[in-house]
């Protein structure tokens, strides 16, 4: 009985991912990050643009995520809610926000610490070549966590893609930001493909809007 209740409680969370729009949005963010790191590789060494470009990533991510969140809401209102219903989610409590901030902090700190120690770990490689490995493994862990929390199987597949891309790019020995850019491009593209497939399947399954005739 307890597990049945838990299964039912998971349904609204699963519903958020049912149309694939979130994966599409994450895929777009991933592709943008890929382009961002690729542009970084084009900045000449010693250029004054390196620091503002590196700092610029944070507002880009913040405002980009907010912008995409607005687009997701608009698309859900147009495509999802008329077909399968509207759900408004509870705002996360203080404890959950603290854990999320802690998770982001620990993840970021691990990447930075690994970056700082990288020359000891991979003395023969360039400093940043191992970052896709760490990023790939951390994000794989995050996808596994989301998959376990939501019960949505495809997150386990994206976890495998993330870990495999991170490991492969680290072993390939790409230079600096190019490896990170390629990693994000792969992750972004895989999410776009997965999201588009899920969205089309959703539209096929629920071809006509349902009417609330209560």
């Amino acid at each position: 009985m307890k597990s049945e209740i838990e299964k039912i409680e998971k349904r609204p969370i699963q519903y958020w991912y049912e149309d694939g729009l979130n994966e599409l949005a994450f895929g777009v963010i991933g592709l943008c990050l890929g382009v961002y790191f690729w542009i970084h590789t084009r900045i000449p060494p010693g250029s004054a643009w390196h620091i503002p470009w590196a700092i610029g990533m944070f507002p880009l991510l913040f405002f980009g995520s907010r912008f995409l969140n607005g687009i997701i809401k608009t698309l859900k209102q147009k495509w999802t809610y008329p077909r399968t219903g509207f759900v408004s989610y509870r705002r996360p409590g203080g404890k959950r926000i603290k854990f999320s901030i802690l998770g982001v902090f620990v993840g970021g700190a691990t990447v930075i610490a690994y970056g700082a120690l990288r020359s000891d770990v991979f003395p023969e490689q360039n400093a940043l070549t191992s970052l896709p490995l760490v990023t790939g493994l951390i994000l794989a862990g995050a996808f596994i966590w989301i998959g376990m929390k939501t019960g949505v199987f495809r997150f386990f597949v994206t976890a495998v893609i993330s870990a495999a891309a991170g490991i492969a790019l680290s072993l390939a020995g790409f230079a600096e930001m190019a490896a990170l850019g390629t990693y994000w491009a792969i992750l972004g593209a895989s999410h776009c493909v997965s999201g588009a497939f899920v969205f089309l399947r959703y539209l096929k399954r629920y071809s006509s809007p349902g009417a609330d005739l209560s």
């Binding site: 209740i5 039912i8 409680e9 998971k10 349904r11 609204p12 969370i13 519903y15 809610y81 399968t84 219903g85 509207f86 759900v87 408004s88 989610y89 509870r90 705002r91 349902g210 009417a211 609330d212 209560s214």
Partner: peptide, 22 residues
């Protein structure tokens, strides 16, 4: 009603169409 209460307990609000589907 247990299903309805469980769903509504997990969210802020839900519409009739969603509850009917679930």
């Amino acid at each position: 009603r247990l299903i309805i209460m469980t769903i509504l307990n997990a969210v802020e609000s839900a519409d009739f169409l969603y509850l009917q589907r679930e």
